[in-house]
Amino acid sequence: MSALLEVKNLSVDIPLAAGMLHPVQKVNFHVDKGETLCIVGESGCGKSLTSLALMNLLPKKAIRAGDGILFDGDDLLKASHREMASLRGNRMGMIFQEPMTSLNPSFTIGNQMEEIMLQHRKVSRQEARDRAVYLLEKVGITGAHRRLGQYPHQLSGGLRQRVMIAMTLMCGPDLIIADEPTTALDVTIQAQILLLLAELQREFDMALILITHDLGIVARVADRVAVMYAGQVVEQGTVEQVFEQPLHPYTRGLLTCIPIPGKTKRGTHLGSIPGMVPSMIGGIQGCHFRDRCPHAFSDCLSNSVELRSIDEQRAYRCLLSPEESARQAAAMEAAQ
């Protein structure tokens, strides 16, 4: 499998009055054709900005840097405004967190869906309309014809997010980036939407970058996982590897926080990670996680901690060897 998207040392900096904010720091990952990569991490870890940086949709003040964002061989960091616009919506699509405000209130669903295809493909309005109806049915919206004439305010949040998904699919993109697409929705609908997304990803053979903190969903839909903490990727691997054998103390902490069907034993206490994400204004010396890490020792403060690759898939960012940190974790669990 060849990589569809390869991100090399991507950084985002935002100048603030208090100093330079480094929300994304030398992030590396890749996505293969037709696979699902989940990026997980808590709020403020830089996962949303990473996704916006890929699409070049960062806020104006933000500065994007890196050694390359290779999309099918082309470096998006070097792409012109025009080249980027011809990729966006066409070969790469994005679904946002806020379905309530992500659609234009003044235009009908049909208009907004058709426009994306009329922009990128040589099709008639009728063909675009047919495609829109087909996709609305695909995402489980009944009465698709009638919906085309409706305005966003006439639809519920769940329906709007389905419309967003259908709209993103209009041009049959190779890659979809979904940035916490269900955070704003009712709990009952969240899983439905995520599973729908995973189903469409398989059916249309697209690559999907799903940004979420729902580890239960990650376990069900991801091929590979990247865990982010304080602007850095701290662990990467296939979903089995990460869930069975987390290498980074943060990942281990995350996994004890959330009940995962079939993994968490009934009756055991759910964990929590004490402390707070460090401020990312100015540089942080050493390991970003050390203040909250149960295994932290003096070297964690002084040495800069690099991402260590074990093999092509697997990497982690910790000074302790996987065996050592696993041994310590087991000892702590036994002590409780």
């Binding site: 980027m84 992500s102 209130p105 994306i116 922009q119």
Partner: peptide, 12 residues
């Protein structure tokens, strides 16, 4: 947000 969506759609 909907202007960001419009950008994400690759509109001129």
């Amino acid at each position: 947000d909907y202007i960001r969506t419009a950008h994400a759609k690759g509109l001129p």
